[in-house]
């Protein structure tokens, strides 16, 4: 079986800093794959390179089609959508307008409305706040907007960057449940970047561990969760 998303020997430079030093990873259809590691390991950079926000060397393929030379806005059309680090909601636009921007590449009103309703069933809170400016929402709600906005693009692979960052534990759990739900219901492949390694491993099928720009370890999430060195370095005991 071919992976939906494959990265081969990806390199990214920020000026003289070699941020990614040959990252290779695969995401298969219907999988939740998490990318864990310490601050500055290159997790977010990997996702930024995937979405075409930073230039990279190496190969990125979606369904065996190489996409590394495509500009950001064309990658979305191939089924790659991202909920970025720090949420990146449009603060002066309403919740509904934010979601509409997620569906920018589509013009089939009916389906867009259905997708929006689907997001509202996932996050009923957003329905209540649909005409509120996104900048006035709480962190958790903004995270819901960011995820919903990415869903509006009908991704085949959903990229989630630190969905738990800065949120209360209860909301984190809720968001992870929804990620799992999306994966089971829509058979969506998900690449999840997380610092909250325990949570990420609990909800993923497979995982990659990153350290200073390289993948140092990979395997089944359940195995990694019980791996001694992982426990010591990332799970805190």
């Amino acid at each position: 079986m071919n992976p939906v998303l494959e990265l081969e020997d990806l390199h990214v430079h920020y000026g003289s800093i070699h941020a990614l030093k040959g990252v290779s990873l695969k995401v298969f259809a219907g999988e939740i794959v998490s990318l864990i590691g310490a601050n500055g390991a290159g997790k977010t950079t990997t996702l930024r390179a995937l979405s075409g926000i930073v230039p990279c060397r190496g190969r990125i393929s979606m369904n065996s089609k190489e996409i590394q030379t495509l500009p950001s806005h064309q990658r979305v059309r191939l089924g790659l959508a991202q909920s970025p680090e720090g949420r990146g909601v449009f603060p002066l636009m309403t919740v509904e307008e934010n979601l509409d921007m997620g569906a920018f590449i589509y013009s089939d009103k009916e389906q867009i409305n259905q997708d929006r309703d689907f997001c509202f069933t996932l996050f009923p809170r957003l329905k209540e706040r649909r005409s509120q400016l996104a900048g006035t929402l709480s962190g958790g709600e903004q995270q819901m907007v960011a995820i919903s906005r990415a869903l509006m693009a009908r991704p085949q692979v959903l990229l989630l960057d630190e969905p738990s960052l800065g949120l209360a534990p209860l909301i984190v759990a809720q968001i992870f449940e929804i990620v799992k739900h999306l994966n089971e219901l829509k058979k969506m492949s998900i690449l999840l970047v997380e610092q909250n390694a325990r949570m990420a491993l609990k909800f993923s099928h497979r995982a990659y561990v990153m350290e200073t720009g390289k993948i140092t370890l990979s395997g089944n999430a359940a195995d990694l969760l019980s791996d001694d060195s992982i426990r010591r370095s990332y799970l805190g005991h």
Partner: peptide, 10 residues
């Protein structure tokens, strides 16, 4: 408001 994210959305 956020051109990077806008590009990410297509």
């Amino acid at each position: 408001q956020n051109s990077t994210v806008a590009a990410m959305l297509g």
